[in-house]
Simulated scan of single mutants.
Amino acid sequence: MLLIGITGMPGAGKSAIYEVAKKYNLPVVSMGDVVRYETKKRGLELTPENVGNTAINLRKEYGNEAIAVVCLKYIENNLKDKDIIIVEGIRSLYEVNYFRKHYPLVLIAIHSSPLTRFKRLVNRGREDDSTSWEVFVERDLRELGFSIGHAIALSDFVVINESSFEDCINQLDNILKEILSNIEKYKKYNFIFEILK
């Protein structure tokens, strides 16, 4: 099994991977959905603060790789027969390392400027998105506290998502083509990281 991880700050455009995944018939597991599910399970409303606190509490309860643990359990219980799985919403180097302990992982970062991301979140209007710049900055700092910056910095591929949705889709499509046409190379990928430890 090969995992393709998607990382990036809130509003960077990580969900664009769903469009490209459809084209290649690849399953996508969302780490953000896991946190939102846990928030609701705890009887909390889906607000930026509640979702953020749930993410923090899960990490306090189960360690820094908590969300990856839950996602991997889901993958092994439901998608074991799949050769390639996309994991959307990787937030930390701890999660990257946890996944890599179990399966080869290729990491793609999607990057956009703060202003671009803020405008997208305001337009998206999901329950846990903020329309306040202060709350947006607070969320960014919380994400950076999880070590998402490390995951982005150590990504294997980077998509710069500052223009159109189509441009982002095209960049992701080219990256997936590269990975799929060299799948055996990427399945041996974790070997490199073992040597570097």
Rank of each mutant, 00 (worst) to 15 (best):
V87S: 02
H102S: 12
E143K: 13
F118G: 05
I152P: 07
L154F: 10
H150W: 11
E143I: 02
E65F: 10
T116G: 01
D128H: 14
A153W: 08
V87Y: 03
T131V: 05
K60N: 14
A109H: 00
W133C: 12
K82L: 07
A55F: 13
S92E: 01
K60H: 13
K80W: 06
A55I: 02
L105H: 13
E88Y: 10
F99Y: 13
P114R: 11
G89M: 09
V87E: 01
A153H: 13
L79I: 02
D83C: 01
V106T: 05
N78G: 10
E138W: 10
N64Y: 08
K80Q: 10
L144D: 04
Y103P: 10
I56C: 09
D83T: 10
F99L: 14
L121I: 09
D83H: 08
D128R: 12
V69G: 05
F118L: 02
L58Q: 04
R91W: 15
E95F: 15
V69W: 04
R142T: 14
R126Y: 05
V137G: 12
E95W: 06
E61V: 03
I84T: 10
L93C: 02
R117F: 01
W133A: 12
D140S: 11
A109R: 05
R139P: 00
V137Y: 07
R139Y: 05
K82R: 13
E61Y: 04
G63W: 03
V70M: 14
E127Y: 06
L141Q: 15
I108R: 03
H102M: 11
R139K: 09
V70K: 14
V137P: 07
F146D: 07
K82S: 00
F118P: 00
N57K: 15
S155P: 09
A68C: 05
E138Q: 14
V106Q: 01
C71L: 08
N123Q: 13
E127T: 05
E134Y: 02
G149S: 13
F118A: 00
I152G: 11
I90R: 01
N97C: 10
L72E: 03
G125C: 06
S155F: 07
S130C: 06
S147Y: 04
S147D: 09
P114Q: 05
T116R: 13
K82P: 02
P104G: 13
S113H: 12
N97L: 09
D128S: 07
I75M: 08
I67W: 14
S112M: 06
R91S: 03
I108M: 08
I90N: 04
V137W: 07
K73A: 15
F118C: 04
T131Q: 00
S92N: 07
L154R: 00
F136I: 05
I86C: 10
E61Q: 07
W133L: 12
W133Y: 12
K60F: 13
D156V: 02
V96W: 06
Y98E: 03
F118R: 04
N78F: 09
P104S: 09
K80E: 05
K101N: 15
V96H: 04
L141I: 12
E138F: 13
V137D: 09
I148G: 07
E65L: 03
V87Q: 06
R59D: 01
V87I: 09
D128K: 10
R120H: 08
A55V: 05
R59V: 02
I90Q: 08
I85P: 00
E143G: 00
D81P: 00
K73P: 12
V122P: 01
I148M: 09
